[in-house]
Design a protein around this nucleic acid. Structure first.
Lengths: 138, 138
DNA sequence: TTATCATATGAACAGTAATTCATATGATTG
DNA sequence: CAATCATATGAATTACTGTTCATATGATAA
């Protein structure tokens, strides 16, 4: 038993104390490529800003021109324009020109689905914390 | 016609040139509260980092101890520990102790659903760009 | 063409967030 | 108890990101 663990230590690479090789092999095989994981993180990053979140929710209701969004959020036209560019580069929104004004709209349904999913998580989490509060009350 | 637009300009608040009041009223009514939108952005922010994304995908396969994750990602134990704390504070992961080692696991199914949704978007987008490439080829 | 409106953009600045380093905690073993 | 292992944490550093400011572009109307 003691002798066994001594042998184990010799086999393991230095600096690593206990054995995760089995799990590591399994997980390594299932993990997506680095590139895909980065792309995925980059996608979620877009939803990880309050301003962009507000813009997306607004566009969920109706297409809007830049200054309308700026007015709605009480922010600079420039700030909104910068964020719209980021959203457009990621193909989350599109735009069309009508005279001087440019209208932005959601590019596809995925935005709606992703937002809804996040919503669900928040709501369930909120309900859980309410339940915990309830348990404390008893 | 000209007189009409002059009257319009008088009615509109200064600095705002064309009329979005109708759309603004509609959208303002449907927009969630600032607090909810911030919470939602904060949630997505968690998925918006490559390291955390990798950790979550790893835990999707199996619960893991901190040093196994560190080894898997080729990163410092400290870095992983910091990120795990963030994920735990947000209730996305939980942990259990077994002797000296602490195992982390996904807290609920929402993580899986949210990640899958993001995945779908990426894949569809990728397919679209392939189709566009195809069109160019013809 | 000139003036104006709507939007875009680059540079600068400020706030945020991830990693590293050193160290602390907490559990186990001898 | 001392030593070691696994993990956590605080401070410092570095990199990134969002907003602002000034200005540019592009379209329309006079």
């Amino acid at each position: 038993m003691m002798a066994g663990s001594e042998i184990l230590e010799e086999i393991l690479p230095e600096g690593m104390a206990h054995d995760h090789s089995t799990i590591l092999r399994k997980v390594r095989g299932e993990l997506p490529t680095d590139e895909l994981l980065c792309d995925l993180a980059d996608l979620f990053k877009l939803f990880g800003d309050t301003t962009r979140m507000k813009i997306l929710f607004a566009l969920l209701e109706s297409e809007m021109c830049v200054c309308a969004i700026a007015d709605l959020l009480g922010m600079t036209q420039s700030a909104i324009s910068h964020q719209l560019r980021i959203l457009k580069d990621a193909n989350l929104v599109g735009n069309r020109r009508e005279g001087k004004t440019i209208y932005y709209f959601l590019a596809d349904d995925h935005v709606h689905t992703i937002l809804a999913q996040g919503f669900d998580h928040l709501i369930e989490e909120h309900q859980e914390s309410e339940e915990q509060q309830h348990e404390k009350d008893l």
